[in-house]
């Protein structure tokens, strides 16, 4: 142990200067009780800043579309490229930030993909392609993908049941569009709606108890 002549304290560890007052120590020291931990940057902080910056760029890009007139010359290709890149970016950011829970990531994906396609459709004179094709196909694919994935990766029921339920409920929305006559061709919506209806029945019969338990927990007052 070494000694600080200024503070009159003994210092444990291999310090050459007093950790309190930085005066030179007298006497040699052996290894102290604390490990030496090198400085490191916080990966969490970097990820958070990148995610927030990305979200800002994405939101601004979507809002910027409102400034253009639909009939502007040469806009079509430019807008498709721009929105395509921004949408891909959005999906990547979501996938990274929700990587801990794949079921939650799928809910976010369905909502974002549906919202972006409807907005895109609206920007291009709303011919209804988003509601007729994109939303039913995305929902259908998500339900199939999610039901397969949670089994393949042996996800615990409690961890995905609420999200699976949400995706299946979202899968019923094309039936609503169909009923309101918002769609051009009825086939995609009908297939998606039928699959969702079957999935709802399956979920309630097979995992109804787990679902109630999980909802009781999450909505506990």
């Amino acid at each position: 142990m070494s000694t600080c002549p200024e503070c009159a304290v003994q210092v444990e560890g291999d310090w050459t200067r007093c950790p309190l007052c930085a005066a030179a120590l007298s006497g040699g020291g052996a290894a102290g009780p604390w490990p030496v931990v090198p400085l490191r940057f916080s990966r969490r902080r970097v990820l958070r800043v990148l995610a927030l910056a990305s979200l800002a760029v994405i939101v601004l890009s979507f809002l910027a579309q409102l400034l253009f007139q639909p009939e502007a010359k040469g806009l079509g290709a430019l807008r498709s490229t721009w929105l395509g890149i921004v949408t891909t970016w959005l999906v990547v950011v979501m996938a990274i930030s929700k990587r801990r829970n794949i079921a939650k990531a799928v809910v976010y994906l369905v909502v974002a993909a549906g919202a972006v396609s409807v907005y895109w459709d609206y920007l291009t004179d709303f011919s209804g392609w988003s509601l007729t094709y994109v939303v039913p196909i995305v929902c259908f694919a998500s339900i199939v993908g999610l039901l397969l994935t949670v089994r393949l990766i042996r996800m615990e029921t409690a961890d995905h049941i609420v999200y699976t339920g949400l995706v299946v409920l979202l899968g019923l929305t094309p039936l609503l569009f169909l009923a309101l006559g918002w769609v051009g061709t009825w086939i995609p919506s009908a297939i998606c709606g039928a699959l969702s209806a079957v999935a709802v029945v399956l979920l309630l019969t097979v995992s109804g108890g787990a679902m109630r338990h999980e909802l009781a927990q999450r909505l506990h007052l």
Binding site: M1, C4, C7, A8, V9, Q10, V11, E12, G13, W15, C18, P19, L20, G32, P33, W34, P35, V36, V37
Partner: peptide, 9 residues
């Protein structure tokens, strides 16, 4: 009082 200091860097 006899004081001993230990600190991580």
């Amino acid at each position: 009082v006899d004081v001993t200091v230990a600190a991580p860097r």
